[in-house]
Write a protein that binds this DNA or RNA. Structure first.
Length: 546
RNA sequence: GGGCUGGUAGCUCAGUUAGGCAGAGCGACGGACUCUUAAUCCGUCGGUCGGGGGUUCAAAUCCCUCCCAGCCCGCCA
């Protein structure tokens, strides 16, 4: 009954889902360390959705550590899986994406059917294709500041860690086949739960390639077969050979329970695609073939990106590396504290909303106001796991305001504007102000990336512009208004009035202002913005002097 | 076709554990004065809680049924 993968539907014991899961785990009376696992196939660029495998487990790990348990969080790089099709986009180790055409696609194509770890790295920087993309996954975890231990599946095979369980499954292959046949219609009499790697062409062969098993010698004989990959066939070479139990891989439906067995996994989150497929069969295999206890499960719903599913092949992806260019890592971690049983949209366009939510979440933790009791309790548990270390409450500039500050490179001006708007308390320490202003760079990146309403830059030097005499006179008059210590609304009104007084439409004068200050036709609401700037500078600029 | 998960304001989501006034943020709209200009501030509008039925003094919440979306029931992971 604890095998129900929808662990988070129905009554929960705690306000924060990770605590409810932690309780389920501790109810099992396990020895330390408790092992939490996730798994990702290093088939291409790891996107934000893939990070569920690591981030969800992290919050459970933290909840267990709160109970003074020792936790080991691992993720398996499922890198013995064969490359089945070429990804359309790849990424170098810095996360910069490149098209398939930018690497030697032909060389990659010739390696279809081989394990990721047996394929040369198209970038030439890592030991293999698998190592390259595993490194990218690790880097994503690093950027989320989540400590995980990477386990290479290939390494588990080659080191012999999988050998005993492989031998056991081959010894009991009829039972294994019978159990799996309850879940997969295509399991035939020739099914063997082992896929030897062809000694000649290097392909991972199919589950019907084994011809004989010699457990005493620890070998199988096989015939290299074709492999179905989606709508295509990767041709085998018909080579007849002998493979040891370390020279092949278990089919996924067995490999997963075998990982639990070998690594002693106590908890594993997984995507909804597993919930009705490999999870139930995995439980059955674990309990009834391997005589194990399967881990506590947790299904998570998938993310969408700007309303559409993540799609590596269509290039509709966003990586952790990209996201942490425009928000703080703790904000991204906060995203993963949300209820995993609900599908979630991650919107780059509306990233300001997520940051606002995080700020509210943080305020709830420190001030315990403005929210209901449940939310407060949730924040009190989840917040410490989201930030590096709980210290004093940080100063947070509203994200879109930070984007406005990003229109200027002048650090002093940024601070002055933030102070004037009351976002920095008078007694704030230099250190805390510096930290607060770091958000400006994030918001600036966001504005540039989405090219949105905040993507303007204050021109440090006078742009080369020419105006007619009416406009010049209007600008001079406006300069006088600003000189008289006018506030934002007054300047805004003055733009309209001055324009009319000089026979211009307000739009023409606005445009002239945007040209002078931003070198563009449009910009932020001009009056209040100019009011925030240094008076003398604004006056000089309006007079076209500097 | 069968099974599973989800559906709450224009958008993103809380609220469903234990039935008790329908919520937040964003967006939109409005903010005297000769005023189309995106930050900040103030305010307003915004709902068939997917539809229908039932239980109940009372239902977003419990039960039945239907609709829609996603996933699984082939391969692969």
């Amino acid at each position: 009954m604890t095998d129900d993968p929808y662990a988070l539907s129905g009554p929960q014991s705690h306000d924060f889902w990770a605590k409810s899961i932690a309780r389920r785990i501790t109810e099992r009376d396990l020895d330390d360390p408790i092992v939490i696992k996730g798994g990702i196939s290093p088939s291409g660029v790891p996107h934000l959705g893939n990070m569920n495998e690591i981030a969800r487990g992290y919050f459970v790990a933290e909840a267990l550590r709160d109970r003074n348990r020792t936790v080991r969080q691992v993720f398996t790089a499922d890198d013995r899986d064969p490359l089945r099709r070429l990804p359309r986009t790849l990424a170098d180790l810095d996360g910069n994406t490149v098209g398939l055409g930018d690497v030697d696609a032909g060389a990659l194509g010739r390696n279809l059917g081989k394990p990721y770890t047996a394929i040369p790295d198209p970038f030439g920087c890592c030991d293999s294709y698998g190592a390259h993309f595993s490194a990218l996954i690790e880097r994503s975890a690093d950027r989320l500041e989540i400590p995980v231990e990477t386990v290479s599946n290939t390494e588990l095979y080659e080191s012999g860690a999988f050998e005993d369980v492989t031998r056991y499954l081959l010894e009991h292959r009829e039972q294994a086949r019978d159990v799996l046949a309850n879940y997969q219609n295509t399991v035939g009499d020739d099914y063997v739960p082992f896929r030897p790697i062809c000694g000649d062409c290097g392909h991972v062969t199919e589950t019907n390639s084994v011809r004989s098993v010699d457990l005493d010698a620890g070998t199988v004989t096989y015939v290299c077969t074709d492999v179905e990959a989606g709508d295509r066939t990767i041709e085998g070479c018909s080579h007849e050979g002998v493979a040891t139990l370390r020279e092949g891989k278990l089919p996924w439906r067995f490999e997963w329970p075998a990982q639990w067995h070998v690594l002693g996994v106590d908890f594993e989150p997984f995507g909804k695609d597993h919930a009705e497929g490999s999870w139930p069969s995995g439980v059955d295999i674990s309990r009834n073939v391997l005589s194990d206890v399967p881990p506590v499960p947790m299904t998570y719903e998938w993310f969408t990106l700007d309303g559409r599913p993540f799609s590596s092949s269509d290039g509709h992806v966003v990586t952790v590396g990209e996201v942490v260019e425009f928000l703080e890592p703790e904000v991204l971690r906060y995203f993963f504290t949300k209820d995993p049983s609900r599908a979630r949209d991650f919107s780059v366009e509306r990233i300001d909303q997520l940051v606002n939510e995080f700020d509210e979440f943080e305020r709830t933790y420190f001030e315990e106001v403005g929210s209901d009791r449940r939310t407060t309790r949730e924040a009190s548990v989840a917040y410490p796991a989201v930030v590096d270390a709980v210290s004093e409450q940080p100063i947070r500039l509203p994200y879109t305001f930070a984007a406005v500050l990003g229109m200027t490179d002048d650090a002093d001006l940024r601070e002055a504007m933030a102070r004037r708007e009351g976002h920095i308390p008078a007694e704030a320490s230099e250190r805390s102000i510096e930290a607060a202003l770091e958000r400006v760079e994030y918001a600036r990146q966001w504005a540039e990336r989405t090219d949105n309403a905040y993507n303007y830059r204050l021109e440090a030097d006078l742009p080369s512009v020419a105006f007619d005499s009416d406009t010049e006179e209007a600008l001079d008059e406006l300069a006088s208004v600003v000189e008289r210590e006018a506030d934002g609304e007054t300047i805004q009104s003055a733009i309209f009035e001055t324009a009319r007084d000089h026979g211009l439409s307000p739009g023409e004068l606005f445009t002239a202002g945007y040209r002078l200050f931003f070198g563009t036709e449009q910009g932020p609401k001009l009056g209040p913005f100019l009011a925030e700037l240094d008076r003398a500078f604004v006056v000089r600029r309006l007079r076209r002097e500097a």
